[in-house]
């Protein structure tokens, strides 16, 4: 249970840790766009350099980055192979019976895989160096203006933060119930799919019952403490935009210009 990683934050004091979550969110968002500007070796090298420097500056153990990549690795490899075998451009490199591999295919495969790789690395950097609650607050502030057009930004942020607050509690609870049912002879991990689905009922029903009870209690507690929606509410969380954040944007701007100049 403890191995599940959902936006796992690794505490630290690096330059990236200290950035304003809004700066990091915007960077990740812009990065997703400018990644598509790259279309030759030089531009990919530039993106690669940016990504690697970012990883280096974050001072995160590489193991965490690798762990974040692991589940996606198969997708990257598959994408690579698909492109290698299906793109028929440029000179023919070699021929494996019915499969023909062209230079254009290899190039395309490498590019697309790198693109995926960079994207995942930058977004994992965001979640690894920012607490989920900071991300939530960042999103709430960034989307703040949307309140005017009736978007329930406050409700969404509150929902997110309560979900974050209760994830560890519910994981713990899941483990407890699994143990209790195992002690009554239930088995969760073996047998055909149909059996497995059936075996999960003794886990899911108690979990739902308890989650509803918690929700009811929590609503009561919030009301007792004077909660009445987002109107007129102040916030203890304060985001500070500093020189570091502006620097990041200048770097990003230079990167974008570089990409534009160097792309073919």
């Amino acid at each position: 249970m403890q191995n599940i990683i959902i936006g796992q934050y690794v505490p630290g004091q690096s330059f990236i840790h200290k950035l304003d979550p809004r700066a990091k969110l915007l960077t990740a968002f812009l990065f997703v766009i400018i990644v598509f500007l790259a279309n030759n070796w030089l531009t990919y090298a530039l993106l690669g350099a940016f990504t690697l420097i970012a990883v280096f500056v974050s001072r995160l153990p590489l193991r965490y980055i690798y762990n974040g990549l692991k589940p996606i690795l198969l997708v990257i490899i598959l994408t690579f192979l698909l492109h290698v075998f299906l793109t028929k451009e440029g000179p023919l490199l070699f021929n494996l019976g019915f499969l023909e591999v062209y230079e254009g295919g290899v190039k395309q495969g490498v590019f697309i895989s790198l693109r995926l790789l960079f994207l995942i690395m930058i977004t994992s950097l965001l979640t690894l160096t920012t607490t989920p609650i900071d991300i939530t607050v960042g999103i709430e502030t960034l989307l703040g203006p949307m309140k005017k057009i009736g978007l329930p930004v406050h409700e969404f942020a509150l929902m997110m933060s309560i979900a974050l607050r209760f994830i560890p509690t519910l994981l713990e609870e899941t483990e407890k119930i699994m143990k209790a049912q195992s002690a009554r002879g239930a088995q969760f991990s073996t047998g055909p799919i149909k059996e497995r689905l059936k075996s999960i009922v003794p886990l899911l029903v108690p979990l739902f019952v308890s989650a509803f009870k918690r929700a009811e209690d929590l609503a009561m507690a919030m009301e007792a403490r004077g909660y009445r929606g987002g109107e007129g509410r102040t916030s203890i969380r304060l985001l500070k935009w500093s020189g570091k954040d502006t620097t990041l944007f200048i770097i990003l701007l230079i990167l974008s210009i570089g990409l534009l100049l160097l792309r073919s």
Binding site: E173, I177, A180, S182, R184, V201, P202, V205, P206
Partner: peptide, 29 residues
């Protein structure tokens, strides 16, 4: 599994493990 048949555990707040439609079904689980 054979061991667990011999060793029963009543966990803290065991009421949280109830899940069946009827009490009988839960007891015979």
């Amino acid at each position: 599994k054979a061991l667990r048949k011999h060793v029963g555990i009543v966990f803290q707040y065991p009421e949280h493990q109830l899940f069946e439609e009827t009490i009988e079904k839960d007891i015979i689980f």
